[in-house]
């Protein structure tokens, strides 16, 4: 159950997507999202879908894993679809009591669902193919200019990489404690909302205790290795910008330009 949370999970591999520089992939995701939100016609959507399919194909990530990533936001997708289906004014198609299904509504609903689905798939493709370490390094370097105006870029990226590092640990720990309490007859699955909230106590208390213990240990471990912030710190794994990164980036710039042009012509 908890194991199904794939948020921010990294699937190690050796595809082109895996080998691209994290900075390049981050910029590409921004371009991709921009294109996604620019598209507003059949042809531009078809183009975005084609590019997404290509991205998935070259990254060797099984479609199943990407679809599973959609599960947590399924509710949002369904609500969006329903709202758009029935609350768009236009040519009526069917009347269901007080609700009217319009032609424009159907089109809007399909577009919105596509947009959310593609958005999630695109961003998941990034986290699936980029190790958390590379991802945070990439972000730190991209946001580096903000250091000039005293934004704690290094600290923020350090916090983010720690959070990413500890998500799986915490999930594992939650699973373990849950099992241990279930072995003593704890019941997390039945009862009304208050009973369930109360039933969580045997899970949350040990989880917090251990999270604080871990934080403490980690701080000690970092300090005993003389960590003192980002000043003058070097990296074991340097990010390297290769020719393929430039090419990939250019391709996506062209892609965004194409979508903007299509929008301009109303396609």
């Amino acid at each position: 159950m908890l194991k199904d949370i794939t948020l921010g999970q990294f699937f190690p591999g050796d595809s082109i997507t895996h080998r691209l520089d994290a900075r390049c992939k981050l910029i590409i995701v921004v371009l991709y999202i921009a294109a996604l939100f620019t598209a507003n016609g059949y042809i531009s959507y078809a183009l975005v879908i084609a590019v997404t399919a290509l991205m998935i194909a070259v990254s060797h990530i099984p479609l199943k894993s990407l679809v599973r990533g959609l599960k947590p936001v399924m509710v949002i997708i369904i609500i969006t679809a329903i709202l758009n289906l029935f609350f768009t004014t236009g040519t009526p198609l069917v009347k269901l009591g007080p609700l009217t299904l319009t032609k424009e509504g159907v089109v809007r609903a399909v577009f919105m669902v596509l947009r959310i689905t593609l958005l999630i798939m695109g961003t998941f493709l990034l986290t699936y193919t980029t190790s958390p370490m590379a991802l945070t390094d990439g972000m730190e370097q991209l946001f580096n200019p903000l250091k000039k105006i005293k934004v704690p870029v290094h600290e923020m990226s350090m916090m983010m990489s720690m959070a990413l590092r500890f998500i799986p640990t915490l999930i594992e720990e939650t699973d373990k404690i849950m099992s241990a309490q279930k072995a003593r007859g704890a019941d997390f699955e039945t009862g009304n909302i208050f009973q369930r909230a109360k039933a969580l106590l045997p899970l949350l208390v040990p989880l917090f205790v251990s999270a604080f213990r871990r934080a403490d240990e980690l701080a000690t471990a970092m300090e005993s290795r003389c960590y003192h912030g980002g000043e003058g710190r070097t990296r074991m794994k340097q990010l390297v910008w290769a020719a393929r990164d430039t090419i990939a980036l250019l391709l996506f710039v062209v892609f965004l330009a194409a979508v903007i042009a299509l929008r301009h012509f109303g396609l």
Partner: peptide, 19 residues
């Protein structure tokens, strides 16, 4: 659920489950 009471399981490092 009932079998959990008949087959008691003490996990490894069980001290982390105290609450």
């Amino acid at each position: 659920r009932d079998v959990r009471f008949s087959v008691g399981l003490v996990f490894q490092y069980p001290e982390y489950q105290l609450f």
